[in-house]
Write a protein that binds this DNA or RNA. Sequence first.
DNA 1: CAGGTC
DNA 2: TCTGG
Length: 257
Amino acid sequence: MILKLKEPLNLDFTLNSGQVFNWKKNNDFWEGFVNGKKTKLKKKGANLFFKGASKSEILSFFKLDESLDEIYQSILSKSGDLLLESLFKKYRGLRILRQEPWECLISFIISQNSSIKTIRKRIETLYSLNDGFPSAETLSKLSESDFRKMGFGYRSKYVKETSEIVASGFDLRKIKGRKFDSALEELKSLPGVGDKVGKCVMLFSLDFNEAFPVDVHIENVMKKFYHRERNIQEFAVKRFGAYAGYAQQYLFFSDVF
DNA sequence: CAGGTC
DNA sequence: TCTGG
């Protein structure tokens, strides 16, 4: 199937930017999961060739309903930021994804204090448990030591407990409609979810485009270029506006990759 | 030493 | 503090 792209999309930047850990490039095909469906992608000019997920699922996954250039403009006109202006040019087509919230949550819980390579391996292990990413019900039936055997370390307890809570009715999707602070608070009530993981889940799966997750890389960037060490979320929204999360993604990408 | 949390 | 690379 073919999709005509009206929006800038760079698959290499987007699928390699630390938002998702279950995509692989084989030759010139990207392979991963969209909405639980194994999907192959290849881009040629403005044509996106795809197999697996449906067209509307792909449009949603890459948030192709949002105009990237308008987002750039919105951030630049508000901030006049020269660093971001150059990053938007350099990494044009780097998009923020709209992932499945449950998978996103577990992915970032097991990402803490780990290298990208380790994170990828852990997620691959989860996928190998059954066909596709295991549900909260499935994971809640495993024990903490099962997760330790998978190499999750101290995060095992978080995964076990969070799975139990979600399996017994905690609805991630209902958080979507909440106010920012309330949504973050709700997520942080889950074991293993702090400020950083919570904001990653909000930005990458729940459409909170103003979420500005702060990890060590962003901390360094903010210190170096903006002379900020505290209250970074507030600063980011004031400076970059409602799409601060996009600014975060470009700053992160330029620092790490 | 690695994209934190409690 | 855990633990893989």
